[in-house]
């Protein structure tokens, strides 16, 4: 019951309405292909958004996820090209992501730099240094079928990115709702002093939040590289904003203290279905930015109204 609180019900209702509307407009909406397409492009966002939900719940934010993701596509493609081994490629990616997550977390907690600024700086550093790593895009020369399978394959007729997302999802639902760590993240975000005076090591959990988010970016980055069949500098542009917008739309508070994975998933589905609908309805694609912008403002506004009524 708790996991379909008012906010989620509203989002779910909105989602249903959207689906009904679009299917009236274009019956292709319910084609298996279209559902695959929506879910596949949602899943890379969702995977990162699980981490971002935790971060926002604990009152932090990570703007470097898009830049990191683009860097990951380059690293994974390059390392597999050189070594011919997917495992080594993954080790390189997750090692790098762990390192970046740690830096983000330590700059936030040890140097006490606001995470909005710390991760903005990290975004710039990554955007620049990916070109130091390689000026040119890295193309798939290893041609290992398993690698293409990660982003493009199907398992039981479900796109692999979706399978990977579904594999990660329960872990985060449980983490945030049923373990003490979930409570720690929300207490740190809601009232850091109270959390600290309850014996919680705020800084440790903040660092963990940043590391988890970066590792998830690693997962999504590998999927993206497989999907593009390329390691591409400058890809995943604006990805961080889509992730944050979806998490906020899902009902997680930007001020921390309140986070919901289910809400995040609904938020992403809504944004992605709007994206999809704009293409299905052949509306100019600029509306892919305009419509979610308005929806986000409304969502956060209604959230504030509801909070005022209940408080």
């Amino acid at each position: 019951m708790k996991y379909f609180q008012t906010n989620e019900s509203i989002l779910f209702g909105l989602l249903v309405l959207l689906c009904i509307f679009l299917s009236f407009y274009n019956p292709q909406f319910y084609s298996i292909q279209n559902i695959h397409s929506i879910l596949r492009s949602s899943s890379t966002v969702m995977i990162v958004a699980f981490g971002m939900t935790i971060l926002l719940t604990s009152g932090e934010v990570d703007l470097s996820v898009g830049a990191l993701m683009s860097f990951v596509t380059v690293i994974v493609m390059d390392v597999i090209n050189i070594t011919g081994s997917i495992s080594l490629g993954l080790i390189a990616v997750f090692g790098f992501c762990l390192f970046i997550g740690l830096i983000n977390g330590l700059v936030r907690t040890v140097l006490n730099v606001n995470s909005l600024i710390a991760t903005l700086a990290m975004m710039l550093i990554l955007q620049g240094s990916v070109y130091v790593y390689s000026m040119a895009a890295i193309y798939n020369t290893h041609l290992i079928p398993l690698f293409s399978f990660i982003g493009q394959g199907f398992f039981l007729n479900i796109p692999m990115p979706v399978v990977i997302m579904l594999f990660i999802l329960p872990f985060f639902v449980v983490l945030l709702n049923y373990t003490r760590y979930g409570r720690y993240f929300s207490s740190i975000g809601s009232n850091p002093d109270a959390a600290k005076l309850s014996g919680i090591n705020n800084n440790r959990y903040k660092v963990i939040g940043f590391v988890i988010t970066s590792l998830l970016v690693g997962v999504s980055g590998v999927i993206l590289a497989s999907l593009m069949d390329t390691g591409q500098q400058g890809s995943a542009k604006g990805f961080e904003l889509i992730v944050i917008a979806a998490v906020l739309l899902g009902g997680t508070s930007f001020m921390g203290g309140k986070g919901t994975i289910i809400g995040t998933i609904l938020g992403i589905l809504i944004l992605k279905i709007i994206d999809n609908g704009i293409i299905l309805m052949r509306i100019p694609q600029e509306f892919q930015l305009i419509v979610p912008g308005f929806i986000l403002i409304l969502a956060v506004y209604f959230d504030g109204v509801r909070k005022k009524n209940s408080g």
Binding site: S186, S190, N191, A194, L197, S253, G257
Partner: peptide
């Protein structure tokens, strides 16, 4: 300020 966690 330091006692209750208001979102809980």
């Amino acid at each position: 300020g330091e006692g209750i966690v208001k979102d809980m």
